[in-house]
């Protein structure tokens, strides 16, 4: 399925969680995956979303450094 992380389109497996899309985004951008512990993820409405939240097709999320 396709999702957007900070406006970048990511193709990820069906059933992936927010954590997996962010990991893929980090790896593509050569950002250390250890940064996962110091970020906040926001949904399209700017609400905080948990890393274990399920993703749906075409969902857009934003990663904010804490």
């Amino acid at each position: 399925m396709k999702v957007k992380v900070n406006r970048t389109e990511i193709e990820i497996f069906e059933g992936a969680k927010v954590r997996h899309a962010v990991l893929q985004y980090f790896v593509r951008r050569h950002i250390s995956t250890s940064k996962l512990a110091s970020i906040q993820v926001l949904d399209a409405y700017d609400h905080i979303t948990d890393l274990d939240a399920p993703l749906t097709e075409n969902q857009a999320i934003k990663v904010k450094q804490l």
Partner: peptide, 19 residues
């Protein structure tokens, strides 16, 4: 799932979690 998320090489089938 973690392994899949850190692999960035292209592949036609995006894969699926078996839950």
């Amino acid at each position: 799932s973690y392994t899949m998320a850190i692999c960035t090489s292209p592949h036609k089938d995006p894969g699926r979690s078996v839950n």
